[in-house]
């Protein structure tokens, strides 16, 4: 790199979209993610996680399934070497998610370190919301939009889960259940709308059906297998369908 990085990234990206990403904190997906962390704040407290540890782990781990495995592992006294593979297995999906997002947000001059840095903010909600909004955003604005949205969500979820932890806030069971229920419904509806090709709808249906079915066979890795089998099957359908349509 011959030029200063600051001027480099200034000309590559349109940072006015960072603020517009942050403004998405007042969106339905943001509200749903914040609700999920209301539950997590309480869970962490029950597991004996201190406020400082909670504030540290929310934005650094930044994937709710990993959070849940980590905290329940700590609560159950599971050794470090057993928690690592469990978390790693649950987080494999970050790899294809990252590979799907990067081509949406990079610009021709993007350096690897820009992408490595923002990749740390990838989690389902910000990922999905950005892929959905990307077509409406000029390419230089996409990475800043993602960073702005994911960044404000990191702050908001840390504050909210910290508050719940500190106040020992408890809510009636039906309220908590209704809050938890928002997340799967949002993920389902949003990934249906985000699909660009029919095969992704098929992948969604297959993954949903295979997940619980494979739990019977491979309870530790059912999500991973459902993703691989469902994803490859949907891609095979895509190849066959496009061959039929093509020359």
């Amino acid at each position: 790199m011959s030029q200063a990085d600051a001027s480099d990234t200034d000309s590559l990206y349109d940072w006015s979209w960072f603020a517009r990403g942050m403004a998405q904190v007042f969106s339905l997906p943001a509200l749903i993610l914040i609700s999920a962390f209301v539950g997590f704040g309480g869970l962490a407290r029950e597991a004996g996680i201190s406020l400082g540890q909670l504030i540290f782990m929310v934005p650094t781990v930044w994937a709710l399934p990993s959070h849940l495995i980590l905290v329940s592992g700590i609560a159950a006294g599971v050794p470090l070497l057993a928690i690592i593979p469990a978390v790693a297995l649950a987080a494999v999906r970050m790899m294809p998610m990252t590979m799907a997002l990067v081509p949406e947000i990079r610009v021709p001059g993007s350096k690897a370190w820009h992408l490595l840095l923002v990749s740390n903010m990838i989690a389902i909600t910000a990922w999905m919301h950005t892929i959905q909004k990307a077509p409406e955003i000029p390419r230089p604005g996409r990475l800043p939009f993602f960073a702005g949205f994911a960044g404000i969500m990191m702050v908001a979820t840390t504050v909210v889960s910290g508050l719940v932890h500190q106040l020992a806030a408890t809510f009636p069971v039906p309220v908590m259940a209704a809050l938890y229920f928002l997340t799967p419904i949002y993920f389902a509806a949003s990934s249906w709308n985000t699909a660009r090709v029919k095969a992704e709808h098929l992948a969604l249906i297959l993954g949903f059906a295979l997940g619980p079915l494979l739990f019977i066979v491979v309870p530790q890795a059912n999500i991973l297998f459902a993703g691989i089998i469902g994803g490859f099957a949907a891609f095979a359908f895509h190849k066959i369908a496009s061959r039929g349509k093509g020359s």
Partner: peptide, 15 residues
């Protein structure tokens, strides 16, 4: 994208 979507769908089913 298909694999990522199927993985997310399996997470939805688990939830």
């Amino acid at each position: 994208r298909c694999v990522a979507t199927a993985l997310v769908a399996a997470v939805i089913a688990q939830l």
